[in-house]
Simulated assay, not measured.
Amino acid sequence: MEENKVSLSKPVAMIACIAMTLFYVAILYAPTLILRLPPPQSFKNFMIRRFICAAISSFASVIFCALVLPIRSGEASYLFGVYGIRSDHIWQAVLFPLFLTNLMYAGSLMLKSILLVNKWKEHRNQDGRPLLCSIKSTLLSFSDQMSSVASNVLFWRNLVVAPLTEELVFRACMIPLLLCGGFKAYNVIFLCPTFFSLAHLNHMMEIYGRHNYSLVKASMVVGLQLGYTVIFGSYASFLFVRTGNLIAPLVAHAFCNYMGLPVLFVPRKGIVSVAFVAGMISFALLLFPITRPDLYNDRTNNCRCWQGYCSWN
């Protein structure tokens, strides 16, 4: 592998990742604590302000990472490639990880299907309309719901801003730094989510203050969230290292944010648990075959230090 030697020291890589984590969280509070701006008049304005802060943090991290990494070419396509931002193998990077992620939510998808069918049957029995009319009404209703959701600021936070900015900082920037710092791919997959989960510690004070939870209850809520972010962060890091493409963890992140926690069990609906178990078994069996580096790259040798998929061959 070309430039396989360590290009950065491990302490430098670690300090750089810690600095980006702290900056990503700190800048969210900069408008009120540093700039002394008045509090937002609405929740929408509050979220828009945070969107701007997250975008600034992501841009700063990309520039900072480019200065720290041993990048010798100034070409835009080369720089974007360092962060996994590529125009090749797009459909593989979208469809394969999305299919793989769906398997973890087989129970949730089965439950949604059951509820959708029951709702459709209920409407059909009440209206007494023909099958085609019922289907048309259901599709129009779904279209209206999607239109209202798209105008919701939480939709943009969960499915666009959070996945894009977090994947840029905690995957596209940090993973190349850690790999070039000499950390093995397996270590990076479990180390990088640590920074990702620490960035969510700020939620504890927000939950404790806004929802009037006790410190113990707030700790339990945040602890569950941190556990989930560590698990998901490991999976997203795995996708980035294996594929070398930022789109892979990005689509997985957006889908997981949309679905929430997987459904494991529903009373009197054993088929949901069966679907969950079958989905997880399929996920485990397909995890490595469906993320083979050669599916996402024209070549998997003669790579730079930040391209971790080379070491998987």
Rank of each mutant, 00 (worst) to 15 (best):
G244A: 04
D298G: 09
S234A: 14
A236N: 09
V277M: 10
I271P: 11
F265V: 02
L295S: 03
G244S: 03
F238N: 04
G227D: 01
V221W: 10
V274I: 15
Y228P: 01
I207H: 14
F276C: 11
V216I: 15
G233P: 09
S237T: 10
Q225I: 11
R299I: 05
Y208M: 07
Y235D: 02
R268H: 15
A248H: 03
V221C: 10
S197F: 12
I290F: 15
V277F: 10
R210S: 14
S214G: 06
H203L: 15
A218R: 02
A252K: 06
T229C: 13
A275F: 13
C256R: 13
P267L: 03
T291M: 14
F240E: 04
C256A: 12
K217W: 12
S219E: 00
Y213V: 06
A218Y: 01
R292Q: 14
P293W: 04
G279A: 09
V222E: 05
A248T: 01
F232R: 06
K269W: 09
P289R: 07
K217N: 07
D294A: 14
P249D: 00
V221F: 08
L239M: 03
A254F: 13
V222D: 00
F240L: 07
F283E: 04
V272T: 01
S282G: 12
